[in-house]
Amino acid sequence: MEDNATLVAPHADEVPDTALLVAFSNGDAQAGRQLVARLGPMLFGYAARVLGDHGEAEDVVQETMLRLWKMAPDWRQGEAKVSTWAYRVTMNLCSDRLRQRQARPQVALESVAEPAADLASVVDIMTARQRSETLDAALSVLPDRQRQAVVMRHLEGFSNPEIAEIMDIGVEAVESLTARGKRALKKALYGKREELGFEDDRKQP
């Protein structure tokens, strides 16, 4: 799996995020632009996965960055990584939006039928795009916390301790969330077997 440390931590010859934030708070707009270039795509990818909506993801990332600019003068070095802080804000904003979405239909995971076909054989014949779309659809039925933990662990590539820091919970709680999230994902995928073509696949010679 891709290690998110390569996405978050600057290379040796790069200025650390914290230094950029301090420079920004001293009026250096270019430092702010560099932070946008580093954090913007990461936060957007995360929010888009969690929310399943690019427009809402843009709103969330924009709000996150505005809050970052606002608190830049009060940033205390050594307290947290800028990226960790930004992910936490984005995560909370995503949670707010997910809570407001009462209309989105949720699959009753407990009532999903037992597997009637082999998921692996279906996934094998999918294109990369189909696999990604299938994953997004399955993620959308997960409870908020499980969804965010699974996205951070398996798509963003964060370690469990990093997720624990972002979510402000213990590492064991993260492990529990991701394990339950993966089980729920499998159930959701089997619940969508007709959409995914399990039945058609079994009819093929």
């Binding site: 799996m1 990818g45 798509l155």
Partner: peptide, 12 residues
């Protein structure tokens, strides 16, 4: 599926 999700990362 996760690997596909990582390679098809949503971009702004």
């Amino acid at each position: 599926l996760f690997a596909a999700g990582r390679s098809e990362r949503p971009l702004p």
